[in-house]
Amino acid sequence: MNWGPPRTAHVTMTFDPEGLTRTQREGDACVACHKKWPRPRTRIGRLPDGTALFACPECADALLPQQDDTRSRPQRVAFF
Rank of each mutant, 00 (worst) to 15 (best):
M1F: 06
M1C: 06
N2K: 11
N2P: 14
W3S: 13
G4C: 13
P5H: 05
P5V: 03
P6L: 08
T8R: 15
A9W: 08
A9G: 08
A9M: 12
V11M: 05
T12I: 15
T12L: 10
M13D: 04
M13W: 05
T14P: 05
F15C: 00
D16R: 11
D16H: 05
P17F: 06
P17D: 11
L20N: 00
T21C: 15
T21Y: 06
T21Q: 04
R22C: 02
R22A: 08
T23A: 14
T23I: 00
T23C: 07
T23L: 11
Q24M: 11
R25C: 04
R25K: 15
R25S: 00
E26P: 02
G27A: 09
G27H: 02
D28E: 12
A29L: 01
C30P: 02
C30I: 13
C30R: 02
C30K: 01
C30M: 05
C30L: 07
V31H: 04
V31N: 02
A32Y: 07
C33F: 05
C33W: 04
K35M: 13
K36T: 11
W37I: 13
W37E: 12
R39L: 08
P40D: 10
P40T: 05
P40Q: 10
T42A: 09
R43S: 00
R43Q: 13
R43I: 07
I44A: 09
I44Y: 02
I44G: 11
G45Q: 06
G45T: 07
L47K: 08
L47F: 10
D49N: 14
G50W: 03
G50I: 01
T51M: 00
A52G: 03
L53T: 04
L53I: 01
L53H: 06
L53W: 03
F54V: 00
F54A: 00
A55W: 01
C56I: 07
C56R: 01
P57N: 03
P57L: 02
E58A: 15
E58N: 13
C59Y: 01
C59W: 01
C59A: 01
A60Y: 14
A60D: 04
A60K: 06
D61M: 08
A62Q: 12
A62K: 11
A62N: 09
L63D: 03
Q66S: 08
D68I: 09
D68N: 07
D69F: 07
D69G: 04
D69H: 10
D69K: 06
T70V: 11
T70Y: 07
S72Y: 15
R73W: 15
R73A: 14
R76T: 14
V77T: 14
V77A: 15
A78T: 09
A78H: 08
F79M: 06
F80W: 04
F80A: 13
F80E: 14
